[in-house]
């Protein structure tokens, strides 16, 4: 028996951050990732594919998000290169199988962000909330580009470790 529309909506929303992240990893554009999530949601609700269990829907959504993101980036002249599809599949498949509850992870991440020094939070906001490039940030903060890369990489790792600590306790 196919999933009801209510279940499709609930399942997609529950996995929204991860599905959007699959698209973002390729497009590296939050607006495009959001559009892709909405488009695939409409496709799912339109009944173009039949889903009998939630896991099937989530898997389909991740694959569709990656394909749409690849199509999006290929349609944009001058865009940066993307990872190989096989690698993207590998990265995403581990994420699906190892995923704790998305709401819990987002909540844990929020707690970790709140604990960051203001300068670190500002850097993350500039990069991901305002979607500025690292070179823009370097200019705005009057620091070297390499310093921005290093600070961001340390922050990503620190947030990952902090989130995992919170989820394990």
């Amino acid at each position: 028996m196919p999933l009801s529309q209510e279940t499709v909506v609930r399942t997609l929303l529950a996995a929204r951050t991860r599905i959007s992240a699959s698209a973002w990893m390729i497009a590296r554009d939050a607006q495009a990732a959001e559009d892709i999530f909405q488009n695939l949601s409409v496709k799912a609700l339109a009944g173009e594919s039949r889903f009998d269990v939630e896991a099937q829907l989530v898997s389909w959504a991740h694959i569709t998000a990656r394909h749409e993101a690849l199509n999006w980036i290929r349609s944009r002249k001058g865009r940066a290169l993307s990872l190989d599809e096989a690698v993207l599949d590998l990265v995403a498949s581990e994420g699906e199988t190892n995923a704790p509850g998305e709401g819990l992870r987002v909540e844990a991440l929020r707690g970790c962000l709140d604990a960051l020094p203001s300068a670190s939070r500002e850097l993350l906001d500039l990069r991901y909330s305002e979607e500025r490039s690292c070179s823009d940030i370097a200019r705005l903060l009057d620091v070297g580009l390499e310093a921005v890369y290093q600070r961001l990489s340390r922050l990503h790792r620190a947030l990952k470790e902090c989130t995992e600590r919170k989820l394990s306790t």
């Binding site: 607006q31 959001e34 991440l109 990952k160």
Partner: peptide
Amino acid sequence: RALIRDAALQAIALADFGRSRALQG
């Protein structure tokens, strides 16, 4: 793989937080 996957999650979550929870774009 875990690091890049988590960085993408962080980026989406930060975009959501920072855009004041408005659907974007």
